[in-house]
Nucleic acid binder design. Structure first.
Lengths: 344, 344
DNA sequence: CTGTTAGCGCTTTCAA
DNA sequence: TTGAAAGCGCTAACAG
């Protein structure tokens, strides 16, 4: 017997016919509405079961205009930072029985734009976006005011929407201050692209801590890996460190934009038999799972990633349920803390 | 001015009215169909743009019965193994312009069942499932023969559907054989739950290598962390190793079910000042990114994760496009290789 | 080249 | 408590 790959699904009409009632009665039975004879209901449920009925949610959504779905656009789902934030989103969504359509933009603007369009076409109830770009003009235009959207993980000025991110300036500040306290005289920073607000904030904190102690900050002390593709942070950290070593830069401390970059830096230093933390102290950022497993264990700035995701979902949920846009937008800033381990 | 959170979307009817044509003309213009006057088309496109039209995909899907979407159910998206496999799926899906609805089951059967139901309700074109359970009877029942589904990452007998997984027996075998070659006399294995086919295969390979060399295998040499929740592999590896140490078990080699368990084992051994690989040699499984960063760098069995995901998508795509179910199901087995680093 | 019409599967008035 | 009928937004068959 040849079977269709996707055999026809049973509809409420099929059920109605078999039960000798109208489709409307079936609909009410299956949706636990009042005004239905318990016996009819039971009978209908039995037939639905027998026939293997599975509702067609497109029809429901088309009618009700509610999808109980949000879209989440992340740059790289295999990056532990994002996957841990995602976990928080997922947890909150499960609690509210919401579905998630997750998309990997690879940090590419064209992808983000395309995905947002797709999500709009799917009439998701809201979107969580990890902004990665310099500018969001086209996307702002696409979304207009008609849609709940939350920016997660990075601040983006010039777009009046809710945002949630961590206190980057503080993070950069406490990391650098700690390095100074430990006696570092010449601290380098390896960071991500400049227009990235997270990078920007961390640099500010870095500078603040240094100038506060009367230490000079020179542009060349801030190494920007502008060719970073998502997923290659480790390599970039490695490359930048090797470069500094080759140039015979003097330094006794490195503050890394994130833990992955720090892993790369550590690898490079180890290869050159430079002792951590004795010769060079390293501080990372994010505190991803693996940072307590590498050697030396990484001193880093902890961001509460799961909380960020969890809160982000609840922010969008609130917007969705509110139904009305008020014109006040919230910027939620999460606290960070320094986790002292072995590397600094 | 108070705005609705989700203001009404423009429909093709709106466009039709404004353009003074019928909805069908608009539909054809916007879908690049033939039989349309270029001028009309241009005009319609302009109006659509002005009005900020975004198509409602539910309506399209309801009509066409095609969603260009697949569902992917993973146990834990933050586990690097799954997130790397997912990357391969994502890559292939992008090439074919398919969307993915990804769901985290946390390895819980009830979740899997619920998610599959939801995906069916959403009329996804197919499902990729990482099977985690002893039994799939209810889910088999839910899917019946009507639906393309592929089991990814683990073999599951007793369900005639396409499957893709790696050569677990070979993996267990080469890992263990290598430990023996390196002079290990007493090798332990720390593994996941027994009913898990991956675990089962790796154990078979483990036993095969040992018996081949005339070494005895005792049940107590195989440590089963049956309380593993997804995401806690590291902890489980640590706990089991500590337990062995406390019991004063003799061993000079450990073959770990996966790299995460190996990380935990390494941590435990380091804490007890046991030298790796001098006193105890460790081999992991999967070769996730971080395995070359920890110290000592992990010797492990590499599974081509991205390829697995990529192939998995293409298998389901083929099924979807085939439209017909033939009764021959394919089991695709991916090769594995030993990556020798420092830990063994 | 364009309009009319029917219908995808479901929910929701409104009557009966 | 139930049925008839309209309609969500779009596509496709058919007529013109």
């Amino acid at each position: 017997m040849i079977k269709l790959a996707q055999s026809k699904f049973v509809t409420i009409k099929d059920i109605a016919e078999k039960a000798g009632v109208s489709v409307n009665t079936v609909s009410r039975a299956l949706n636990n509405k009042p005004d239905i004879n318990p016996k009819t209901k039971e009978k209908i449920e039995k037939i639905a079961e027998e026939l293997g009925y599975v509702k067609n949610s497109y029809a429901t959504m088309l009618k009700s205009q509610i999808s109980n779905t949000i879209g989440v656009i992340v740059p790289d789902s295999s990056n532990p930072f994002f996957s841990e934030v995602f976990k928080g989103i997922d947890k909150a969504a499960k609690e509210k029985d919401y579905q998630i359509i997750m998309m990997n933009s690879e940090g590419i603007y064209e992808n983000e734009e395309k995905f947002i369009r797709t999500l709009l076409e799917r009439r998701v109830d809201g979107i969580l976006l990890f902004p990665m770009q310099k500018s969001y003009e086209d996307i702002k235009d696409l979304i207009k005011e008609r849609f709940p959207i939350i920016l997660v993980g990075r601040e983006y000025d010039g777009w009046d929407v809710d945002q949630i991110f961590s206190d980057e300036i503080k993070g950069g500040y406490i990391a650098t201050k700690y390095l100074i306290q430990k006696g570092c005289k010449k601290i380098k920073m390896i960071t991500d692209e400049l227009y990235n607000s997270a990078s920007f904030g961390r640099i500010q904190g870095f500078k603040k801590a240094l100038t506060e102690r009367g230490l000079k900050v020179q542009d060349e002390d801030i190494k920007i890996c502008d060719k970073i593709h998502e997923g290659y942070h480790i390599q970039a950290g490695y490359d930048e460190t090797i470069k500094m070593l080759k140039q015979k830069d003097k330094f006794d401390g490195i503050f890394c934009y994130n833990d992955l970059i720090a892993y790369g830096a550590i690898k490079a230093l180890k290869e050159h038999k430079i002792k951590i933390p004795n010769d060079v102290r390293i501080v990372g950022y994010d505190d991803i799972t693996f940072s307590k497993l590498i050697e030396p264990e990484l001193t880093t700035v902890r961001v509460n990633k799961t909380e960020m995701g969890y809160e982000a979902f609840n922010m969008i949920y609130k917007r969705i349920k509110a139904k009305r846009m008020d014109n006040s937008f919230v910027k939620k800033i999460l606290d960070v803390e320094l986790i002292v381990r072995e590397s600094a």
